[in-house]
Nucleic acid binder design. Sequence first.
DNA 1: CATGAATGAGACTTCATTCAT
DNA 2: TATGAATGAAGTCTCATTCAT
Lengths: 214, 214, 214, 214
Amino acid sequence: MEKGFAATRIEEVAHRAGVSKGTLYLYYPSKEELFKAVVRQNLSALIARGQELAGAYEGSSSALLAELLGMYWKRVGETAATGIHKIVLAEVRNFPELAQFYADEVILPGDRLLCACVQRGIDRGEFRPVPLHEVAHALMAPIIFMALHRHSFGACPVRGAIDVDPERVLQAHLDLVLHGLLVRAPDAPKARTRPRPPTPPKPQKTPKPPRGRR
Amino acid sequence: MEKGFAATRIEEVAHRAGVSKGTLYLYYPSKEELFKAVVRQNLSALIARGQELAGAYEGSSSALLAELLGMYWKRVGETAATGIHKIVLAEVRNFPELAQFYADEVILPGDRLLCACVQRGIDRGEFRPVPLHEVAHALMAPIIFMALHRHSFGACPVRGAIDVDPERVLQAHLDLVLHGLLVRAPDAPKARTRPRPPTPPKPQKTPKPPRGRR
Amino acid sequence: MEKGFAATRIEEVAHRAGVSKGTLYLYYPSKEELFKAVVRQNLSALIARGQELAGAYEGSSSALLAELLGMYWKRVGETAATGIHKIVLAEVRNFPELAQFYADEVILPGDRLLCACVQRGIDRGEFRPVPLHEVAHALMAPIIFMALHRHSFGACPVRGAIDVDPERVLQAHLDLVLHGLLVRAPDAPKARTRPRPPTPPKPQKTPKPPRGRR
Amino acid sequence: MEKGFAATRIEEVAHRAGVSKGTLYLYYPSKEELFKAVVRQNLSALIARGQELAGAYEGSSSALLAELLGMYWKRVGETAATGIHKIVLAEVRNFPELAQFYADEVILPGDRLLCACVQRGIDRGEFRPVPLHEVAHALMAPIIFMALHRHSFGACPVRGAIDVDPERVLQAHLDLVLHGLLVRAPDAPKARTRPRPPTPPKPQKTPKPPRGRR
DNA sequence: CATGAATGAGACTTCATTCAT
DNA sequence: TATGAATGAAGTCTCATTCAT
C-alpha cells in the first residue's frame, strides 16, 4: 500500500512478515497471487464491516446514513486499509481479474447497501425522490476520495497544504448532502447528527509540520 | 496512465512517440525525469483549464458552481487527462517532489477557486454559512472520484457493473449539494442549472437487474 | 532416469519413495550422494545380471554370443535399468568419480566377458582371428544404443518414426556380425541361432510409408 | 555439450560468446530456445554433410558404405558436434518438441540414406537380401555409440580404461559387418577399405595416462 | 540528431538443505 | 526415526541506460 505493486519488493514483504523470501512462496505461488490475496483479505474486512452495519437500524434515515458513513471512515478511512483503494485504483488495469472481484465484492454490495438506505428514507417520507445509484455515488465518493487523498498526499510533507480535518470534512459533507436530501429542508440545518457551530475558529491554511514518512 | 510508472516500458513510450529508445534519452535523462515531465505537462494542461474556468461570472453562485463543475467534467473528466489523477495518486509516495508540485499547481488553485465561489454565495446571501474548504472538498470529490473510477474500472469489462451515467451523477450531485447550500431550500429544487424533472422516468429501484456491459 | 539429474527434484523422489523430503536426508547426505547411490545400485544389478550370464556354456561360440546378447537385451535393454545407461552417459562429466566406478563395474567386466567368448571362438577354429576389444565393441554397441534410443526417443510420441522392432534389430545384428566372424562364411547363413527365413516376408522397401505410432 | 542443459549457466555461454548475459536475450527469448537453436544448428550441419556424401558414387556398395561411415566419423564423431548426440539423448524427454525435430531432421534422413545404399548393394548382387532398417541400425549404431562414449567417458581420466582406438574399432566394425553383408564371403576378408594386418601388436589394457579435463 | 545493439544491476523464483518438533 | 516448515544461495530473465556509429 505504501509503494504500489511494482515498487514493493518481495524481500521486504517477507522481512516485515518476519519470514524469509522463500517462505512466502510456500503460501503464495507468485507475487501476483500474493498481491491478489492482500487485496482480497482487506476487502473481505471491508465487506464484513459493511454488513455488520447493515443490520436493523431504528432511527431516521439521515441518522442511519450519517452513522454508516461515519463508521466507514472510522473503520476504514483512518486505518491502513485505506491503501487498498489506492492500490486497486492503480492496478486494476494491470490485473483485470481484480476488476471483477472488486466489483462483485465491494462496489455492488456497497451500492446495494446505500441505495437501500436512501430508498428507506424516501419510503418513510424523509427524503425527496432522488435517483438512487447516483445519490449513493454522491454520498460515498467524497469519503473514499478523502481516504485516497490522505493515503497518498497525506503521507507527503507539503508546504502550504490545506489542512482539512477529516472530521470536519465528513461533517460538512453530511450536513450538505443530507440537507439536500430532506423533503423540506428546514431553515436551520437540524439534520446534522451532532449539532456543531458552522465553522469554528480553528485556523486553517497553516503550514502543518510535515510528518516524516516511515 | 494506462499501466502506471513501473509497468510502462521506456521502449513502448519511445515506440508510441515514433522514435527510438536512445532518442528519448536525448531529451530526458532518466525514466523518472520523463515521468515527472509527463505529469508536469499534464498538470499544466489541468491548470490552464482551471484558469479558463475561473473567469468572471455574473449569474447566481449556484449556477456558477454548476457551471464550473460541469465544465471541469467536460474538459478533464472525460478526456485522457483524467489519468493524471490516477498516476499522481498512485505515485506521489514514490516521487515525493511530485506532492509539492501537485499541491502548488492543482490543489491550491482549485481550492482557492471553489472557496471563492462559495464565499461569493455566502456574501451575496445565497448560501448558508459553511466551512469553505470542507465544502470545496465535498463539491469536487465526487467528480474527481468518478473520473478516477472511469479511468480505472471503466477500462475493464466487468459483469454486472452498475452502469452509472456520469451526466446523471453530476446532475444528482449538483442537485443535492447545491440544495444543501441554499439558505432556504425551497420545496422544489429550483437550484438546478438546467431545469430537469427531479427524477426522470428511468425507473431505478434498488436491486436493479444488472445489465451486463460488453 | 526420466528427467536427468538436475531436472529431478528431491521432493518428487521422496514422494515416490513414500517418505518426506527430510527423511531422504537421514539416509543420503546430499542430492549428489543419492544420485550416486542410485547409479551404483542399478549398476550392481547390471553386474549381477552379467555374471549370471557368464556361466559355463557348451554350444558353439556363435550360439553363446547370441545367447549372451539376447539375454542382455531381455534382462536389461527392455527393463527400466536401461535408463542407467542414459544417465551415466549424460552425467559422467559432471560426476567424474562415476567414470571410474562405471569403468570398473560395468565396462571392464563386460568387455572381459565378450572378449573371452570371441577368443573361445577363435581358439576353437570357429572364428577368424579378429581384434578382440574392437569386435566386442561392435557386438555390444548396437544393443546398448538401441536401449538408449528406446529409453529416450521411445518415450516421445513422434510422427513418422521408423518403427524398428528390437527383436528384429537384434536378429539382424547377430546375423550380420556372426556371419562376419565365421572363418568361412557358408553360402547360406546357417550361423543363426534360431533358424529363420533370411528375410521374412514383411516387405521392407526403402522409403517405407511411415506408420505413425501412438 | 560439456555439462548438459541444466548445469550450463547462461552467464557462461554469454561469456564464451564474448557478450553479456543480456545480449543473449536479444537473440534468444529463453534458455530453452537457445538450447533448441544450438541443437538445430548442429544438426543442420550433420544433415548437410550426409547429403553431400549421398551424391553420385561409382565404386562398390561396400566401399560406399565404408566411405560414408568413415566420413561421418571424421566429420562428426571426432568433432565437438558429437556432444549433440549426448545432449539430445539426455534431454529429449524434457523437451518433447526436440524429439519430432530430431526424428525429422536426423534420424529419418540418415536412415533413408543408409537403406538406399544397402538396397543398392542388394540390387547390384553384392549383398545378401537383408532387412534394410535393421541393418542400417546395425551399421550406424556402433559408430554413434563410440562417439557418445568418447564424448562422455573419453573426457574422464579412468584407470585401466580399455584404450580402444576409434580408427581400429571403425575398421573392425566395417570388416565384420560388410563381411556379413556379402553374398559369398571370400575366404580372406578382402572387403576392407584399406588393407591392414588383422591385429597389430599395439599392447592393450595399459593404464593410459589420464588426459586431464579442460 | 537519431539509432539500436549491448550492458549489467536487480528482481522474482526455485529448490537443496536444515532443524525444531 | 520421521516430518515439513523455513531458509537463502543461486539462477533466469527484464529493462533502464549507454554509446559507437
